[in-house]
Design a protein around this nucleic acid. Structure first.
Lengths: 229, 229
DNA sequence: CGTCAAGAAAGTGCATGCAATCGCTATGCC
DNA sequence: GGCATAGCGATTGCATGCACTTTCTTGACG
């Protein structure tokens, strides 16, 4: 990423978008933090033009907020909006689970169950980080299993925006085992082809996560600058 | 505002985004059509820089497709993706209707019913264009009535992208009356507070529209350039 | 002492220019 | 005659520069 030749990768801006989005999603950049064009340009060793383009992308994604003539800041998410996103997430996951129960191919069902069972070991070991990886993969399987690209996109996008607020969820004691059990209910329903049950289980699963994360998010919002008119 | 502007409106790019998005959404620009930067710059009497920024926004919105070093085209929507968007739309509307049944305030319920009843006259008169306006407003009330800003945004965005494929739906004979009756089922369920019934009615309503539009969309796709590698 | 205003500094918004890349065409070779 | 390749035109990608807007600072007035 540094010292690259002058060769046109064709995705210079995309790389910046991913890099900045990653910093926001991982919480490295906090909501309300200013995104100075010149600083970013220096940081990525490019001119301001591609920076502005990247900020445009991120703005359209909802990750940053652009105020005319006043620069860009990492999107400040109100408590209300955060709640609405979690609720949406629950509904979107419910849709994916319902569709997955109806449409997953034999191969998709098999690998879903296999991976799910494999992750049980991680729960026993208490391997939070490894489980988090499997957890992400598990949900991605649901999104893909819905066999609906648009729902997939909406769900992935919403999940990305929620990522900063879900980071500490597995730190709560017993959360790992509970998460696995909730996954188990979803998997069982999908294997039965019970769409309604799968949808309900997925919705409940996400709702519980949202409650676990909401408190953390509330605490985290204190240092956010309130200088937005 | 008009003519030569030496004053910085601060939203020059946004105006272009809306203008281009409008042209795409209304079908004035067809899928696959090339969006030349210099032509657009000349068309809007600006330089290429804001044009590029606007294209970035539109690309992030999914309305245009940007191929590195190969320019931008109006997003070509495959039959599969179109179907997935219609299906998503049905699910999103179902969510909005369900939430509306549970959460709409007294005022919202009242005005929903009043406007709905008023639009009955337009059906009798066969006023397609006026009904289309009320139809849009009707659905917007559902989205707002869900009291969930994120679902609202997702739904509005999806609806926008489907707009080009829904244009001729009311030209089918009897569609006007059928649409009103379907709306009536939704309104009745919402007034009863019957979330499940409202959701189902909304889903069915959109599904029917999608079927009515699918054929039109299929015919419309013929002239689309298939030069995409 | 607090409020307001004028100027300077900082930073964004857009225009312009140049270099790299892509697509097309014509020419040479098999 | 068909296919590969080099050259050319067209177009995109990015850097730089200037104008305008916002904001911070400093000084005057109530």
């Amino acid at each position: 990423m540094s010292g690259k030749r002058l060769v046109r990768s064709g995705t210079t801006v995309d790389q910046m978008v991913r890099a900045i989005a990653d910093r926001i999603v991982t919480g490295y950049l906090r909501p309300g933090e200013r995104l100075d064009e010149v600083s970013l340009a220096a940081r990525f060793d490019v001119s301001r033009t591609p920076v502005r383009e990247a900020l445009g992308h991120l703005s359209a994604m909802g990750l940053v907020e652009r105020r005319p003539n006043r620069g860009a800041i990492v999107a400040v998410i109100t408590q209300d909006h955060l709640a609405s996103m979690f609720e949406s997430m629950a509904e979107l996951e419910a849709i994916c689970a319902r569709f997955s129960a109806e449409r997953m191919t034999g191969g998709e069902r098999r690998s879903l169950e296999i991976e799910h069972q494999a992750s049980a070991r991680l729960v026993q070991l208490g391997a939070e980080e490894d489980y988090e990886y499997f957890n992400t993969e598990f949900h991605s399987r649901l999104y893909r299993g819905a066999h609906n690209t648009h729902i997939h996109d909406l769900t992935v996008a919403t999940r990305s925006r929620l990522a900063p607020f879900r980071r500490a969820q597995f730190m709560l004691p017993g959360r790992l085992a509970k998460s696995w059990q909730e996954h188990d209910v979803i998997v069982t329903a999908i294997m039965r082809g019970d769409a309604a049950a799968a949808g309900k289980a997925a919705r409940d699963h996400v709702s519980i996560v949202s409650e676990a994360s909401a408190v953390f998010a509330a605490d985290d919002r204190k240092p956010v600058r309130r200088d937005v008119a």
